[in-house]
């Protein structure tokens, strides 16, 4: 990636993180008391903590200009939370794209002065990749919600079905004995 772009990005990373967090929190319009932002205890405010650490983590990886795979776990933490809150898929995922606007606005002047539009485009392509990964994660967790329901049903009923001889299972040990012979 363009080194000059990364340098400028690095210089503004705190402002960018903070605006990105603001944008994320703005998707909770009912949070009038500012709880999500102000309560700093990670156990008293797990949502705020997850977002703050997640955003900082993703920005740090992006600033390095390397592969973004290191940021996937942060992305995953954030999306896991948003996947079970009252959001449509678009609203749950919008935060990834908001980063583009924020970076353009924060770095616009420097980009114009230094003529590093290519650097910006490279960076935006990275965000697109990040967004694609984010969709995979979102769908994975939405699907898991439905799996949890079926797993729960199995836990409740499997032993009964076995007992009623409606289902049977080959015990592990028998397979092992065959292996040993």
């Amino acid at each position: 990636m363009d080194m000059k772009f990364l340098e400028i990005f690095n210089g503004k990373k705190i402002a960018i993180s903070s605006r990105w967090l603001d944008a994320m929190i703005a998707s909770y319009p009912n949070d009038n008391s500012g709880f999500l932002m102000n309560q700093k205890d990670r156990f008293a405010n797990p949502v705020g903590y997850t977002f703050t650490t997640g955003i900082e983590g993703i920005i740090e990886v992006l600033v390095k200009g390397e592969d973004f795979s290191e940021s996937v776990s942060f992305l995953e933490d954030i999306i896991k939370v948003r996947a079970i809150q009252d959001f449509t898929p678009a609203k749950a995922m919008a935060f990834v794209f908001q980063l583009k606007t924020i970076v353009r606005e924060e770095l616009g002047k420097e980009i114009r002065q230094n003529q590093i539009y290519d650097g910006l485009l490279d960076f935006e392509s990275k965000i697109d990749d990040l967004a694609l990964t984010a969709f995979d994660i979102y769908v994975k967790y939405r699907e898991q919600i439905y799996e949890l329901r079926t797993d729960e049903l199995k836990r409740m009923t499997f032993s009964l079905l076995k007992k009623a001889n409606l289902m049977s299972e080959i015990p592990d040990q028998e397979v092992e004995h065959k292996d040993q012979k």
Partner: peptide
Amino acid sequence: ASENMEQRMRGGFPRANAVKY
């Protein structure tokens, strides 16, 4: 219940967050 699975995942998040720690 199971039909409110999302609600359960929300309600249990603070507990799960401490377990994660």
